[in-house]
């Protein structure tokens, strides 16, 4: 027989003491029982550090605090894996909770996805924009409804999606601080360039890119996962010296074609750096001791470091603008 205990009749400080002894997920479940339990959990003052939304065949809300995390899953009913039934996220739904190796199914309460989010934002005092990860299968959910529920977002992560879905998502979630784009979903180059020119702080791009694409980028930090040629990077550096990409602070990429010799710095005036200066940059940017570094300067006097590490026939390059 389950134990029964009238916890809510205890003094508030005792209830708070009890709640401090249960994990993040159980707190979340406890907060859903009544308005009073919601207020009690809110009064603990636990702040979420990040709230990530994963959208594929199901939707997950992952809440991270400084000490722990909790995961809630929605629409993860087992159905024919080949069949992607459309889901209206405005219809109230129950959640499944996951914590470490525990999975707790809770048939109540039934809330709309928007209300689930509001509940989490309230009890964990989370007001920042969310990080949203779209993956294969997310086509089940209507993008406009998701946009209405999620609002402005911090990170937008797109991978493994049909081009049509990617385009819809990029159109609706058009101003993230950080964008991860696995594949260019546009046929026309001007459309992808509109994405690259947007001023998100961090851009991670996995698909092919041209010199023009590089020069249009308006982000502070960029990571290219595909390689550039030595010539392409050399031309980029020459444009940067003349004043292109004024917002750029850091870029990482791979350079191939080293069998013909290292020509990516050809025609560029490079300055040697002192050991102390190199050590400071390694410390500040968390770089390995094996990176080779040279310094360049643009016409307005801004300095940058090209740090590279050779591996087989390619260079792993970090371009760091110094303030």
């Amino acid at each position: 027989m389950e134990p029964i205990f009238p916890i809510l009749k205890l003094p508030k400080n005792v209830i708070v003491h009890v709640l401090e002894g249960i994990d993040f997920t159980q707190l979340l479940i406890f907060s859903l029982i009544s308005l009073k339990t919601k207020q009690l959990v809110t009064s603990l003052g636990i702040e979420a550090r990040d709230v990530d939304i994963g959208i594929n065949r199901k939707i997950s809300i992952n809440v991270h605090s400084t000490k722990s995390y909790s995961s809630l899953n929605f629409y993860d009913e087992l159905s024919d894996q080949n069949e992607l039934s459309l889901v209206d996220i405005n219809i109230p739904v129950a959640a499944t909770f996951e914590y470490l190796y525990t999975r707790i199914q809770s048939p109540t309460p039934l809330l709309s996805f928007n209300n689930w989010l509001n509940h989490i934002r309230t009890i964990f005092s989370y007001t920042k924009p969310l990080n949203v990860y779209f993956r294969e299968g997310c086509e089940r959910f209507e993008v406009q409804s998701l946009k209405n529920a999620l609002g402005n977002i911090n990170t937008l992560f797109l991978t493994g999606l049909p081009d049509d879905s990617s385009r819809k998502i990029l159109k609706n979630f058009n101003a993230p601080s950080e964008l991860f784009l696995y594949r260019n979903p546009f046929e026309d180059t001007c459309h992808i360039q509109q994405i690259l020119i947007s001023n998100c702080e961090i851009l991670r791009f996995v698909d092919e890119y041209s010199l023009d694409d590089m020069l249009l980028i308006n982000s502070e930090k960029v990571k290219f996962y595909r390689s550039a040629t030595q010539k392409q990077f050399n031309q980029f550096l020459k444009h940067w010296i003349r004043g292109s990409n004024p917002r750029l602070r850091r870029m990482s990429l791979l350079i191939t074609g080293l069998v013909d010799g290292e020509v990516y710095l050809k025609g560029i005036r490079c300055m040697r750096m002192s050991k102390a200066a190199k050590r400071e940059i390694r410390r500040k940017h968390n770089l390995s001791d094996f990176l080779h570094m040279i310094q360049i300067k643009r016409k307005d006097g801004t300095a940058a470091v090209v740090a590279s590490e050779k591996s087989d026939d390619m260079h792993y390059v970090r371009f760091i603008v110094l303030h």
């Binding site: 809510l8 707790i104 809770s106 048939p107 309460p109």
Partner: peptide, 13 residues
């Protein structure tokens, strides 16, 4: 409270 869902918690409390 540990390991309980909302309905089970309602019964406990």
């Amino acid at each position: 409270l540990r390991g309980k869902n909302t309905q089970e918690m309602i019964k406990v409390i």
